[in-house]
Design a protein around this nucleic acid. Structure first.
Lengths: 243, 243
DNA sequence: GATGTAAATCTGGTTAACCAGTCTATTCTA
DNA sequence: TAGAATAGACTGGTTAACCAGATTTACATC
């Protein structure tokens, strides 16, 4: 027999259920910030699932900073109070699956900030890496090959030059997913590759001259197709939001 | 005997080593996108660690969309080519630990976009939630209590109203960590709570009247203290970046 | 030789026993 | 009675055996 498990925003339904149970348990026991959660074994028994499932759920909540497991001691509730905890868990459980459009939209403003910070803060070494990435992209494109990878690496080099590790990490998590979806959605036409070289060049120039405003403008230009792609659907979302 | 394991940006040194080994293995075997990785058991033996460690490393790479494990079948390399794969793994391994300032800086532009989208797209239900969050914050503050939690929930309500699940998720991951660090760094003075109510009110007003520009202005105003906090250090980073 | 089939092997995922510290309750001592 | 010592239960983490399904292999059949 084959059991199909639905996976939404990285949470399968079982995990959701467990997280929800943990939440009600924290509520019913009036556990305060810093207090200890019941042991994994106890939770497993009480909720009626295996200990492994409990561990997964705890790990998920830990990744949001809501819990903290201490080896050989216990799992503790973070400093956030119960109100924040409840609110956050509710939002996590109800978070819709990130769709392609929201990813693209998010990527755009991440890129904008990325390139701005890069223009302001890049080191000589950063610039060298960016120019190398541009060169790789150029040669690959001019030789008529696919250059999606080199494009990705170019943008990631800029993110690295932003000297904002947090932003850099967000770019690293979001961009690859978009890239792999690109072909599927046919957003990018192949004849755009040549003009994209020029666009990349002016972006690098803006970074080199430490002109964040110009850099922002050029990256917006570079993403104009994606931008329109978002905007087209934005109206629709507005309409939906109005009812 | 107690072995201390250094943890940097969520990757302990052992995990880093394993990821690095996997990378060189993919390189040396000339594995193409879509091809299958050697089995976990084989990797474990070859690298000389336990299978559990291998699983952790794979899971990490999976979270970045570089690998994809299929039950009872194998772990596959994503559609990204080897160049992108190598570049991304390098960046992941060298990613500096996100410091408080970079988190704050990132939060600010996440909030800016969040409030802009909320102003454009919020539903009646969203607005209701935001106003409720504001009310909770007001009563808690006016009664002289700590209201950090209610502040957090207010901002998360706005993120939810942005109707961008991707952005919403980033906000959920980044904000709590900042909140818990707040007291440590003494960024927020307690006498600001009262004026913060007013600031929250004008933000809500801008959202209600669907004025994204005004909303952005008001949220910037709201974060001006944090903004200065960032700016003060930005100069320093620029200087560092110039050498 | 091509093809369908069954058995053996190999896969990632799961489970339960085990481990090394931590915490607690009891006992022993001054 | 107060405090230190200790034994035992309890903690999250780790390991190795196990599972069910996928995949490959070998073989019988035509």
């Amino acid at each position: 027999m084959k059991t199909i498990v639905k996976v939404v925003n990285g949470l399968e339904s079982k995990e959701k259920m467990i997280i929800s149970e943990i939440k009600t348990l924290i509520d019913s026991k009036n556990l305060e910030p810093g207090e200890k959660l019941p042991s994994e074994r106890l939770l497993a028994e009480k909720i009626g699932v295996t200990r492994g499932s409990i561990r997964n759920a705890i790990q998920k909540l830990e990744s949001y900073g809501l819990l903290k497991s201490m080896p050989q001691s216990g799992t503790f509730i973070s400093n956030l109070g119960r109100a924040a905890l409840n609110g956050m868990i509710d939002q996590i459980l109800n978070l819709p699956e990130p769709d392609f459009k929201s990813l693209v939209e998010t990527r755009i403003f991440l890129e904008i900030n990325s390139v701005r910070f890069a223009a302001i803060r890049h080191s000589a070494e950063d610039l060298e890496r960016i120019e190398q990435a541009l060169e790789d992209y150029r040669t690959k494109t001019l030789s008529g090959n696919e250059s999606v990878e080199e494009d990705l690496l170019f943008h990631l080099a800029i993110a690295q030059a932003s000297h904002n590790p947090s932003l850099n990490q967000l770019m690293l998590s979001i961009t690859p997913q978009i890239i792999t979806d690109f072909e599927k959605y046919h957003v990018c036409k192949s004849d755009m590759a040549l003009s994209a070289i020029k666009e990349h060049e002016v972006i690098v120039e803006a970074i080199r001259t430490r002109n964040p405003d110009q850099a922002e403008l050029m990256i917006k230009e570079h993403f104009s197709v994606l931008y329109q792609y978002c905007y087209k659907t934005k109206k629709q979302i507005i309409k939906e939001g109005n009812n």
